[in-house]
Design a protein around this nucleic acid. Structure first.
Length: 543
DNA sequence: TAGAGCGAG
DNA sequence: AACACTCGCTCTA
């Protein structure tokens, strides 16, 4: 619709192969659902406009723009798929002026004031959310929904209750009751088809069932930590952090088709995939150290989701940097292709007939960057008894996908109710059970030690960063060098370049703001109260 | 660590 | 549960 505004008022579906993967709200009013077959969709709505969506590039692009815009708010942003993000705005809430919740408030007639002041903070977060959504509209012309809560679980779920282009806030005290309304355990993020089946087999169908069940029942079937996690999720308790997203850990493509049974066609497919993937890789700019081939066989006794993979390492020397960008010369390309075929031979015995319906290719294990799991960058972030999490999603899609595809029940969160002009509140249905649930409402956990309180001063941070780059490819520093302006002299370029681009931007912009004359790194004025930028942790600790 | 499985969009 | 296409996390051998 953004690309072609004429489509805004028309029923529009995005087509991949013979499936409608998503659609706009006009189409939904005809009963079009995600994952619906094109033929079925056209039966429901003969005027349905279909646009091919197999090329994900435009979506990646928009997704990146959204992510970048969110990062300008100087808070941890975690990408969830291509059209959703969590943002932990705890650090902004403290300085937020004003008053009152913007948008919908869940359960608004029954607010018990909490000692910790969480309602105030969350209402501040709702105003921040409003500004963020306005910025997304102004800058990128995209409408969004937001859910505002003290943890990711509730933020995500509550954000789906008023759509499209609306936002909803929920207070911690309402979390348990809100969850108890959900008809299927599968509505809980993290519980998918398999876990839901297992739970159902234990007699646990609704979230209420899960809330009320004995933990030992779960312990019989799940490991102790999974059992506990499921139980806690059902009650609205979730202390997982908003993990700052960096570049992807793997970069892959796959293609499905009717059937391939001869080697030459396999090779053709893989050549095509490699060509496309190399474009993505050059775009990404990092050197991979591994490659993976994926295939799916026809008529497996296993479900169609079943895939087999083979992996091997690749020499980084196959990839070179020219003028700051990654290139793969023809000879390297041929070597890659022969490795890919070898992996394929590991998967398929050519002396026997084979029938393949999907082939995939992925680069993995990119050369060491400073960030990532267990890296020091993670310790730079605030920890989280997070008081204010926003879940933002673009309006072209809806979450709670599980329900659309499950075909089980007509849930209260169905697409139908969302397309009504005035969404009817669902709480009426449940007033009967709320009182006895209220007592088990979790109270927000007390603040944990913020990792910022580790006394990591500037010198420590710099020396830490400077220790590592031994195994780093020196080429990699050149890759970013063209953008090289406004970085203080005493910064190790190699280390700086190895940081994810988001952090680089973050650092650059703070240098620009704080030291317009480009003075020394350690002279940056302290601006501790504001923002959540990594720069703060490079600054000598006043205490 | 490789590979499969699950879950997310 | 399949259909399509990607990515991350976790478990097991």
């Amino acid at each position: 619709m953004i690309k072609n505004p004429e489509l805004v008022e028309k029923p529009l579906g995005i087509q991949q192969k013979n499936i409608i993967v998503t659609c706009n709200y006009v189409a939904r009013s005809f009963g079009i659902k995600k994952c619906m077959l094109v033929v079925d969709g056209l039966k429901l709505c003969p005027g349905l406009v279909l646009v091919k969506g197999e090329d994900l590039q435009p979506y990646r692009h928009m997704s990146k723009n959204i992510f970048s815009l969110l990062q300008t708010f100087k808070c941890p942003v975690e990408k969830l798929g291509m059209d959703e993000n969590f943002i932990d705005v705890t650090s902004l809430v403290k300085n937020e002026g004003g008053d009152g919740v913007v948008g919908h408030l869940f359960d608004e007639y029954d607010v018990n004031e909490c000692d910790c002041g969480c309602e105030k903070r969350l209402s501040a977060a709702s105003r921040i959310a409003q500004r963020i959504r306005q910025a997304l509209k102004d800058e990128l012309n995209i409408t969004t929904c937001a859910g505002i809560a003290h943890n990711k679980l509730l933020a995500k779920l509550i954000g789906s209750t008023h759509k499209p282009n609306q936002q909803t806030t929920i207070y911690p005290a309402s979390g348990c009751y809100f969850l108890s309304q959900l008809d299927s355990v599968q509505s809980i993020p993290g519980i998918g088809v398999k876990t839901a089946e297992t739970l159902n087999s234990l007699g646990l169908v609704t979230v209420l069932d899960l809330q009320n069940c004995d933990i030992n029942l779960l312990n019989n079937t799940f490991s102790a930590d999974v059992a506990l996690k499921l139980k806690r999720l059902s009650l609205g308790i979730d202390n997982s952090e908003v993990k700052m997203s960096s570049k992807p850990l793997s970069l892959g493509l796959e293609d499905s088709f009717k059937i391939i049974s001869v080697e030459s066609e396999v090779k053709e497919k893989l050549e095509t995939l490699l060509t496309r993937l190399l474009v993505l890789l050059e775009n990404d700019g990092r050197k991979p150290t591994g490659i993976k081939v994926t295939l799916r066989r026809q008529m497996q006794p296993k479900p169609v989701t079943h895939r087999e993979t083979r992996h091997c390492s690749v020499s980084p020397s196959l990839f070179q940097f020219k003028d700051g960008s990654l290139v793969v010369v023809e000879s390297s390309r041929r070597k890659l292709m022969s490795m890919i075929m070898k992996l394929f031979y590991k998967l398929v015995d050519l002396s026997k007939p084979f029938h393949i319906t999907l082939l995939g290719l992925a680069f993995t294990k990119f050369q060491e960057m400073i960030t990532g799991k267990g890296s020091i960058a993670n310790y730079f972030m605030n920890d989280l008894s997070v008081q204010s999490i926003l879940n933002l999603q673009s309006d072209t899609d809806s979450s709670v996908t599980s329900m659309d595809c499950s075909g089980l029940t007509d849930t209260t969160l169905s697409e139908k109710s969302e397309s009504e002009t005035e969404p009817s509140p669902k709480k009426v249905r449940f007033t009967g059970i709320r009182r006895h649930l209220r007592q088990s409402s979790p109270s927000p956990s007390p603040s944990k030690l913020r990792v910022a309180d580790l006394h990591l001063n500037a010198c420590d941070a710099v020396s830490l960063l400077r220790l590592s780059p031994k195994e780093m490819d020196s080429d990699s520093s050149k890759s970013v060098s063209p953008e090289w302006s406004g970085v203080p002299n005493d910064i190790d370029l190699e280390v700086f370049n190895a940081l994810p681009s988001s952090l680089q931007q973050d650092l650059r912009s703070s240098w620009k703001r704080n030291v317009p004359n480009g003075s020394s790194f350690c002279d940056i004025p302290v601006n501790n109260d504001k923002g959540n930028t990594i720069t703060r942790y490079f600054i000598p600790n006043k205490r």
